[in-house]
Design a protein around this nucleic acid. Structure first.
Length: 343
DNA sequence: CAAATTTGACCTGC
DNA sequence: GCAGGTCAAATTTG
């Protein structure tokens, strides 16, 4: 059956292939005028991202990408680990979609963030979001208590993203951060108006990365919630993400800020003032606020759950893996019109 | 004084 | 019953 979805699927792959070719052309053009190691590095990553995207969409025709590069920064993501049990739950629960399991299907992923002892033993730095601590618990068998944070804008913007922070027993400079749910708030409005100056080389790199950003934008699922905002003003992934696919194989994601050349994309400099217990996080995305009950009784609306899950494909690496493109999983009323889904 | 944090109590799932 | 997660009143902070 050649469904419209299959057609769009092939279109996405075709666009990715074309994008990769154009990136190569751009790279050869730039290198002919001003060869640069940074450009080589960035091009490798751009191509790697394309390959990974293609791999995800069409695993039979592509080989696994190389591993990601490490980062040299005061705060570095040691790794991002999607917890296989969460993924397994997500897939297993598809058939039995009750409220309890829906909650489990919230995109969840874990990162380990290492901080420099001199500037971060109190906690890793800002991840670009505003979090409010709402609890702390001593965990059985853990030396350090676990802290619970939720988005500051939960009430204002109905944003249900939460995170748990726990210092590693083995290495006190490592914090294990578990993110649950994705931000539906718009915190980009807190970004500084004037970005720091950017060198010409960085501008060139940014131009290339903009192509990727557009690609990411074109791949986003149009949730059409009434909020027509497009790509966020700032947009980044943690330096290295390792995601597991449906077979629990890890897929390594290197990003555009990994070598520090594209710091302008990092939420670290765009972020509002936040507590010291903030870290890297997936990029924010922009969703409409949903009316709905809140509070103690775990009664967030079904819509919010659906949005949290599916909209996360735009910004949450795990979210995207959590919910493969499968029409059966999507809201039947999902506005999958071609003009909205593809640019 | 408003916002953020702390912390004991309460709720939920296993 | 226990452990983890969350609430909400009290307290602290800016």
């Amino acid at each position: 059956m050649e469904s419209a979805c299959t057609l769009e699927y092939k279109t996405v792959i075709n666009e990715l292939v074309q994008g990769m070719e154009k990136a190569k052309q751009l790279h050869s053009h730039l290198c002919s005028t001003s060869p640069s190691r940074a450009q080589d590095l960035l091009m490798q990553r751009i191509l790697s991202s394309y390959e990974k995207a293609l791999l995800i969409l069409n695993p039979k025709e592509h080989t696994p990408p190389p591993s990601a590069a490490a980062v040299d920064s005061p705060i570095s993501v040691v790794d991002g680990i999607c917890r296989s049990e969460d993924l397994n739950n997500s897939f297993r629960d598809n058939q039995d979609y009750n409220a309890s399991k829906k909650r489990k299907m919230q995109p969840t992923w874990m990162e380990q963030v290492k901080v420099n002892p001199e500037n971060g033993l109190e906690g890793p730095a800002d991840d670009g979001y505003s979090w409010r601590k709402y609890g702390q618990k001593d965990i059985l068998g853990a030396r350090y208590p676990r802290s619970y944070y939720r988005c500051t804008y939960r009430l204002v913007q109905n944003c249900w993203a939460t995170k748990q922070v726990q210092r590693s027993d083995d290495d006190p400079t490592v914090f294990e951060i578990t993110y649950k749910g994705t931000h539906t708030c718009n915190q980009s409005t807190n970004a500084p108006v004037v970005p720091p100056p950017v060198s010409q080389e960085k501008q060139e790199l940014q131009q290339q990365s903009q192509a990727l950003l557009k690609l990411k934008a074109s791949l986003r699922v149009n949730t059409d919630t009434g909020n027509s905002e497009t790509m966020p003003a700032h947009f980044s992934f943690p330096s290295t993400y390792e995601l597991c696919d449906t077979d629990n194989h890890y897929i390594s994601f290197s990003d555009l800020v990994g070598d520090g050349n594209l710091g302008a994309y990092s939420p670290l400099f765009l972020s509002p003032a936040t507590s010291e217990t903030n870290y890297f996080s997936p990029a924010p995305h922009h969703m409409a606020s949903f009316g709905g009950s809140q509070g103690y009784q775990h009664t967030e609306s079904d819509i919010a759950d659906i949005v949290s899950a599916h909209a996360s494909t735009t910004n949450s690496p795990i979210g995207s893996m959590d919910f493969p493109i499968d029409p059966l999983e999507l809201d039947p009323n999902f506005p999958f019109n071609t003009s909205g889904f593809f640019r």
